[in-house]
């Protein structure tokens, strides 16, 4: 026989309503932040350990494919050496021109270093990482729309939600992620890069006249508010081009494994 103790039920209902009420009071928000702060340090420590285990496992897997890639790379290296000498010459020329014209003011990006507290989600372990939660928030100067990068300056994602001392980074491959980007080709083609199925990205509406090749690097264009140019988003892996279409489309693969991240830098806007 199903017996419901209405006194208990009423008690729990009041507690739930009480929590809801308190959640929207600023005073209680600071307590919520404190709870998360207490928990976040051991959580980050364990997370880092797990992350390094995973990294090791991935490394072993990659060793095999690396051997195959090695031969291709040796060939590519020789080609690049030739290109490199050409670029060195251009670099020297460029430096001279900058000096003379005072063309470029080198502004160092201010950055906020943050620890990854957690990633993944409770109900979708098969999916690629949709969000990353970091231990810096509005109190540290993090704002919505800023770009988070890894230690090599490769884009991880955009800050999508901010609290006092934590923030959520929406990774660049998430279907809601959109970033103004430039292809590092001759014409520096600009466009919008969108996340695609949580695995890759797509750059759509590229005019047929633009020359985009497999392997081209895609970087942020700097046309977006608070996002500086030059952060790498990924590399073109295929280009969808057909003569009966008005536009072409490039599929881009990210250059980082989001699961290996334990630290990120949030790039503050240059003022």
């Amino acid at each position: 026989m199903l017996k419901i103790n209405f006194k208990n039920f009423l008690f729990f209902l009041i507690v739930v309503l009480f929590l809801f009420g308190l959640h929207f009071f600023p005073f209680f928000n600071s307590w919520e932040e404190k709870i998360i702060s207490w928990v976040s340090y051991p959580v980050h420590k364990t997370y880092s350990r797990v992350s390094s285990w995973q990294e090791e496992r991935e490394k072993r897997k990659q060793e095999e494919s690396c051997r195959q890639e090695k031969e291709e790379l040796i060939k590519e290296k020789n080609e690049l050496l030739a290109e490199n000498s050409k670029l060195r010459f251009l670099k020297k020329e460029n430096e001279k021109l900058r000096k003379y014209l005072d063309f470029f003011e080198n502004k160092q990006n201010k950055h906020i270093l943050a620890r990854v507290i957690s990633q993944g989600f409770l109900v979708n372990p098969e999916e690629e990482t949709p969000y990353i939660i970091i231990n810096k928030g509005s109190e540290d100067g993090v704002e919505e729309g800023l770009l988070a990068v890894n230690s090599e300056g490769i884009a991880v994602g955009k800050i999508s939600k901010v609290r006092g001392n934590t923030s959520q980074v929406l990774v660049i491959t998430h279907h809601n992620s959109q970033l103004a980007a430039t292809v590092q080709n001759e014409n520096e083609t600009s466009g919008i890069v969108e996340g695609d199925l949580g695995l890759t990205m797509k750059m759509k509406f590229i005019p047929q006249t633009e020359e985009i090749n497999k392997g081209d690097l895609i970087t942020t264009s700097g046309l977006e508010k608070n996002i500086s140019p030059g952060s790498i988003l990924g590399r073109v892996i295929s280009v969808g081009k057909s003569s009966d279409q008005m536009w072409q489309e490039a599929v881009i693969e990210p250059l980082i494994n989001f699961r290996d991240l334990s630290l990120v830098a949030v790039l503050a806007p240059t003022k």
């Binding site: 420590k45 993944g120 098969e126 699961r259």
Partner: peptide, 17 residues
């Protein structure tokens, strides 16, 4: 709660489930 966030969620596949 801590174990779920730090140990299980980052794993893809079976353990993460």
């Amino acid at each position: 709660f801590g174990l779920q966030l730090s140990l299980l969620n980052p794993w893809q596949g079976w353990l993460g489930s």
